[in-house]
């Protein structure tokens, strides 16, 4: 019995040390990627190519999800608000929830599972098939040539995707409450515009999504680059990308929200 407890504690300790080690390694890799980003900035064509794969190919899922989330928000918000006779505030509700929270967070979660996992799998497979070693032997740094462009493409596309998600959501809310239910259109927009502040709500939402983009892209490229060069290794890394990014997004969201809305309301 005592033996089992001791081995259990040892296992926990081992895991903690192991993850700390990995975290440090990941941080070093992140710095390395930043330092080697000059190539991708000089040859922006590389980033544009990756923008296609991370950004453009995520468009459909982001737009459709945004529309549905907005429609649900409109429906739920209307149900609750009409009990208090303030159904005209439904525009405010939809817009504020989307711009402040749901837009950046849900878009980032979708982005992690759509583009993040693809980045990890691609880099992991390139490693497993020795493409990265081959690049190194050709005197081309794989971090500068393969990793950095994918990282920057992720960072750039995330705020755009989050903004599109929010716009589609607002449109979805408008569709449900104004077009289907019949809330006054003028009140819907004016209430929204009166209560959504550019600097506090919209700019902060964009800043959030920018941070989420950095987190997802950094995790995705690191997991891919660090993946064991086998089929199981790559599939495990892909799963880890989605899990770790989702946790990172939600954790970061709390921290950023605490910073941004401190002292207000």
């Amino acid at each position: 019995m005592l033996k089992r407890i001791i081995s259990g504690i040892r296992g926990i300790g081992h895991r903690v040390i192991d993850s700390t080690w990995r975290l440090g390694y990941a941080a070093r890799f992140f710095i390395l990627v930043l330092l080697k980003s000059t190539t991708s900035l000089r040859r922006f064509g590389l980033v544009i190519r990756e923008l296609y794969f991370t950004g453009v190919l995520s468009l459909i899922i982001i737009l459709v999800s945004g529309l549905f989330v907005g429609m649900v928000l409109g429906l739920q918000g209307y149900e609750t608000l009409q009990k208090f006779g303030s159904e005209s505030a439904v525009g405010t509700l939809v817009a504020l929830s989307l711009v402040r929270e749901l837009g950046p967070v849900v878009a980032a979660l979708l982005f992690a599972s759509r583009a993040g996992s693809a980045i990890t799998a691609e880099i992991g497979l390139m490693k497993a098939t020795e493409q990265l070693s081959a690049m190194g032997m050709m005197a081309v740094d794989p971090v500068a040539r393969v990793v950095a462009p994918r990282f920057w493409a992720g960072v750039i596309s995330m705020p755009f995707l989050a903004a599109m998600f929010s716009v589609m959501g607002v449109f979805g809310g408008y569709l449900v409450t104004v077009v289907f239910i019949g809330v006054d259109e003028g009140l819907f927009w004016s209430q929204m515009q009166n209560n959504v502040d550019f600097r506090i709500d919209i700019a902060n939402g964009v800043i959030k999504s920018f941070f989420f983009g950095i987190a997802v892209a950094a995790i995705a490229v690191f997991e891919g680059y660090d993946a064991p060069p086998t089929a199981e290794g790559v599939s495990g890394a892909t799963t880890r990308t989605v899990v770790t990014s989702s946790l990172a997004i939600l954790g970061l969201d709390f921290i950023l929200t605490a910073f941004m809305f401190r002292g207000i309301s």
């Binding site: 691609e122 020795e130 493409q131 070693s133 081959a134 190194g136 032997m137 050709m138 005197a139």
Partner: peptide
């Protein structure tokens, strides 16, 4: 390393580039 060429075990061609772009890579 620019003076060295290496042929990897299974070729290690860049799967996201065409044959032409692979050869033109360096």
């Amino acid at each position: 390393r620019r003076k060295m060429g290496m042929l990897f075990q299974f070729g290690a061609l860049f799967t996201d580039l065409s044959v032409f772009d692979n050869v033109a890579f360096q």
